[in-house]
Write a protein that binds this DNA or RNA. Structure first.
Lengths: 340, 340
DNA sequence: CATAGTATCGTAAACGTTTACGGAGATCGA
DNA sequence: TCGATCTCCGTAAACGTTTACGATACTATG
């Protein structure tokens, strides 16, 4: 038998619904013996408080939404990227009974409209944004609705909300210094779609660092490609027949580096020998041959920080995370490989 | 300015909340002029009906949950797998105003308990299950709760619910016949974790088909591995030093085939030459060298079918999908490559 | 014994919707 | 002109919780 509402459960126990509710929610004004009875009966009869009723009354849902877009041509990052982040996020949320769900925006729907719709409905108590664009209306939208949110990535259309972003500045400094001091003079960058913010931050810093070595980042060596296998492959081919081929390339997207390897190889070039390749860490990275020189991201820890940062901006939890970083650049450490 | 509830919106327009609600929901008992006014005001003031209130009253949420587990060691499939399926699912759901969300079960929580918790709460009107296990209590659980659901994959603990599963029987027939007639006599299979159902179905049929050719599928040539890069790599190494190495291997998981290639290569074996490799299609498949011989899955179409199948089992939508397949094996077509 | 305090519980309001019901005008047909 | 029908709208109940408030019984204290 399975019980429908708190009313049925209360009738079954011959006590009032108020007491049942208090017993289930761990409130103090309830005899320990009756609490035991209530909990036992709830367990036995499979009662779980209805989400809508509870949310309506409490004004909060206990759900945090992580927005992502379906249609892999757009997102492209390996599932391991997000899955690792989620894993970290959830270890924090579990402590507070919060549930993480992925809000899947169809590739056929406008992301801004989607977010407005789902957020205005009061679906989630907080939002996590990713794939932040250079000009991204979602920030203002969430700000207007006064929904706590954190973004995984920066944007020019910032509204002062908390964020965590990979430290592309630090990465640019490290990688460009390394390549320049190793004698590379023509260095390429492969970055995802131009609307995304991350590529711009990176390239800008690269220019500064290279300038310090008397080098420039040439415009025709900045490649954009879909952040997936196909995109990487295409650039590999393109590099092979490039009029003045670079001696190194830095790849910002983990999803396209294997494609790049294969594209290069198909064109007769050997990564790490004919052209140095440096990328971001992914599960594939250390199984490529040659082993990819890449930046470790510690994604699970990033997820933990992301969750703490969000909670710190939610009134109900802020006190528990007094020293969570508000806006943070996530450091990446270089792992030596054989590719550059 | 942003408006909070239907009450505020109604006051603002000097009409009753009943009329406002009817206007917004497209009911007939409302003057076209006032409907226009209501819609305009709602748009301008950013009003969207509260999810909890609406769900509480209507008894349905308009949300369909797709359950998946975080922690990539377990799932492993490329995000492209699910993202493609989602894309198809959403094109169907969009027609009915249904939203698809991914229910993310932490690797630290028991999947059964998680599902019970979130489903009993009435969070979603319907559920999609994936990564179905041989013995999977989620089926009985959803059945007990009378929640419409469909599974992407079969299970021994079936409860007669609709499902779509890849046609591993058909695949086994095709691939084993092909390999046997090409002279392979020692054929290996790489399948994911033993708890999952799919590997068993496949292997069983393989045995039957091979028997027809006077061959056997030897036990020490059935490999289990995590469905990811690392798992594939490990098996590649293992194959290389196997006492009686097979001349072909069929890989059931798209996430581990690149790892397998690299593992083989690192051990000095060339896929497609020293050992034939046949797998499932993935974005990487056609960029590998040699190009992978693989089975196309048409995942977006699968998603469409999956959605239609679920809707056909929901009373509110069943009439719209009179001839949706109830339990379906999804055909896969072989794409010739250079790997086997 | 009287009173204050405490432990435990029931009652009812409130959260924001949707919708069944009925009522007020307007229109129409005879 | 008068009922009948139709159009449009307001009222109020209901969905399942949580929680403020008050009531009751019991304990402690003098």
């Amino acid at each position: 038998m399975v019980v429908k509402g708190i009313r049925q459960l209360a009738d079954h126990l011959d006590i009032s619904i108020g007491t049942v509710s208090r017993a289930l929610n761990g409130k103090k004004d309830v005899n320990e013996e009756t609490r035991r009875r209530v909990l036992e009966a709830a367990e036995r009869l499979g009662y779980v408080a209805n989400q809508s009723g509870r949310a309506l009354r409490k004004g909060s849902t206990g759900v945090i939404g992580f927005m992502m877009q379906t249609g892999h041509e757009i997102t492209g990052q390996g599932d391991t990227f997000f899955m690792s982040v989620f894993d970290g996020v959830q270890t924090v949320f579990a402590r507070h009974g919060l549930d993480l769900v992925a809000l899947l925006c169809s590739s056929e729907e406008d992301p801004d409209a989607y977010l407005e719709r789902v957020v205005a409905r009061g679906f989630a108590d907080g939002i996590m944004l990713s794939a932040t664009r250079r000009i991204d209306h979602r920030f203002a939208l969430l700000d207007r609705r006064k929904i706590p949110f954190v973004s995984l990535g920066r944007s020019l259309t910032d509204v002062g909300q908390p964020f965590i972003d990979l430290d592309f500045e630090g990465m640019a400094t490290t990688v460009m210094t390394r390549l320049a001091t190793r004698g590379h003079r023509r260095i390429a960058v492969l970055r995802p779609h131009d609307d995304l913010n991350l590529g711009h931050v990176f390239v800008e810093r690269c220019r500064e660092v290279l300038a310090g070595h008397g080098l420039v980042l040439e415009d025709d060596l900045i490649f954009n490609a879909s952040p997936n296998e196909a995109g990487g492959y295409r650039i590999g081919q393109e590099l092979a027949r490039h009029p003045n081929r670079p001696s190194a390339i830095v790849v910002l997207n983990d999803g396209s580096v294997t494609g790049l390897f294969h594209g290069l190889e198909a064109a007769g070039l050997t990564p790490g020998k004919d052209i140095a390749v440096i990328g971001l860490h992914s599960p594939q990275a250390r199984y490529l041959s040659p082993r990819l020189t890449c930046f470790d991201l510690s994604l699970r820890d990033l997820g933990i920080s992301l969750a703490e940062t969000l909670l710190a901006s939610m009134p109900a939890y802020a006190a528990l995370y007094p020293d969570a970083a508000h806006r943070q650049l996530w450091p990446m450490t270089l792992i030596d490989g054989d590719s550059g």
